[in-house]
């Protein structure tokens, strides 16, 4: 565990908890894409299948349980909570799941390290995580006016990815056989998706104006 990895995990954790807390306290999910949240729930479910078979560390197990629990709680709030679900803007959040899920599944079946159920599911989760933010980015682009919390949520998620890249560079130099190109390529693609958002986020922060994305 290095400082980049820990900072990345903490940023990821804070992003998810900020979102859950926001939904819980203001009883609104305005600006949040249910599609992205469902994809994340699927990402964690397929990635953490090893929760039942392998033990890595207490830290690892606890974090996995938090990510699983929080992602399913968010989906539950948006779909089932009687007040929260009213604020969900279904008409704007139109991205199709299968449009993302199917290509990732096909890719995972074709490109993986080992052809076992667990390994293919793990690889699928990496590909899926790389693009799961797309419905959220499309929603931000459409609504244009982004409230602070949604902006911070997306910013924290992007920061988490950037920190993971630093972690891989660090591990590559400190651990002799640390070469995981599937993880790296998926991670770099994922981080690049945030580049555009980051640009406007920093602009708005620098000029001290409300974050708006161009149409």
């Amino acid at each position: 565990m290095n400082i980049f990895r820990l900072a990345g995990d903490m940023t990821h954790l804070v992003s998810v908890l900020v979102l859950l807390l926001k939904i819980h306290t203001i009883k609104s999910c305005a600006g949040i894409s249910l599609k992205t949240q469902e994809l994340y729930a699927l990402v964690f479910t397929t990635r953490y299948l090893d929760l039942f078979t392998d033990y890595i560390s207490l830290y690892n197990t606890v974090m996995k349980l938090i990510f699983l629990g929080s992602s399913f709680s968010i989906v539950w709030y948006i779909r089932r909570h009687k007040i929260v679900r009213r604020s969900y803007d279904k008409d704007q959040d139109t991205f199709r799941h299968y449009f993302i899920v199917l290509p990732c599944l096909v890719l995972a079946l074709l490109i993986h390290h080992k052809f076992t159920f667990k390994e293919v599911m793990w690889t699928f989760s990496l590909y899926l995580e790389a693009v799961a933010i797309l419905p959220q980015l499309v929603l931000l682009q459409r609504t244009r006016n982004i409230d602070n919390l949604t902006g911070q949520y997306v910013f924290l998620l992007g920061a988490y990815r950037a920190l993971y890249i630093l972690n891989w560079i660090y591990r590559h130099y400190t651990e002799p056989h640390y070469v995981h190109w599937i993880t790296w390529i998926a991670g770099i693609v994922q981080t690049l998706l945030y580049a555009d958002f980051f640009y406007y986020y920093f602009q708005s922060w620098k000029n001290n104006v409300k974050l708006q994305l161009p149409a």
């Binding site: 090893d50 690892n60 993880t183």
Partner: peptide, 10 residues
């Protein structure tokens, strides 16, 4: 090379 990634990342 033997593949031995232990999936220690989240």
């Amino acid at each position: 090379r033997h593949y031995d990634y232990d999936h220690d990342e989240l």
